Simulated assay, not measured.
Amino acid sequence: MSSQPTPLSLALSQRKSDERATPMSAFRMARRWWLEGRRLNLSLLAEELGVGRATLMRWVGNKDLLMGEILWSQYKNLYDEAIERAEANPKLKGIDFLAQIYTDINIALINGKAMHDFLRAEPQWGLQLLTSNISGLQSRLIETWRKLFEEQIQAGNINPEMDAESLAYFIIRIGEGAIYCDLICGRTPDPEPASTAFRLLVNGHSR
């Protein structure tokens, strides 16, 4: 006579299906690897997830796009935190508000261990991902800043000579040169020149 299954035995029998890998679990694992300083290997990732490489590729597109999602998630977290800090300071208005956000993000990128490890281990690929649009990252950065600039222009807080999209493009390019190139060359980046250039572009003066 067979005994009735217990809740525990049912849970254990369902555990494998409940823990089936998904596109999000692939992203989370890949992001954790990156934060730990591990190289992104899609074959190993697929094996760890218990799926075929073809399935993983269908989920993430390719290695460049997956890494772009990881880098974007990192930047977006820093951006959101910088926005929150700037909005909490009522003294920050207009160019000071924007420059504080830009500088905070650049300092966080400079101090981030994962970014240091990544660019030291894979400088050529890292620079391609960060400074071109092969991963979709750059267009997201430009669009994020374009929206912020447009909000500030429409609110009458800044009156730049360039349009919002051009401003966004150039401030992202300045950040790339001031941070990533120095990191790859083994120099300690200085956020101050980038902040000065930001003010000059957005407001026409450095202070």
Rank of each mutant, 00 (worst) to 15 (best):
M1S: 09
S2H: 12
S3F: 07
S9Q: 15
S13G: 11
S13I: 08
K16A: 12
S17I: 12
D18A: 14
R28H: 13
R32V: 02
E48T: 15
L49E: 04
G52E: 03
A54F: 00
W59S: 08
K63S: 06
G68E: 10
A82N: 11
I83F: 11
N89S: 06
P90L: 10
P90N: 06
P90F: 05
D96K: 13
D96P: 02
F97D: 04
N106Y: 13
I107E: 12
A108F: 05
G112Q: 09
M115N: 07
L119Q: 04
W125N: 01
Q128K: 05
Q128H: 06
L129Q: 07
T131G: 03
S135K: 07
Q138S: 04
Q138M: 10
L141R: 15
I142L: 00
W145Q: 05
K147H: 07
L148Y: 08
E150D: 13
Q154R: 06
A155H: 03
N157V: 02
I158D: 09
E165L: 15
S166Q: 07
I171K: 02
E176L: 01
E176K: 00
A178D: 05
I179K: 00
D182L: 08
G186T: 01
R187H: 05
T188P: 01
T188N: 08
S195N: 11
A197F: 11
A197E: 11
N203V: 00
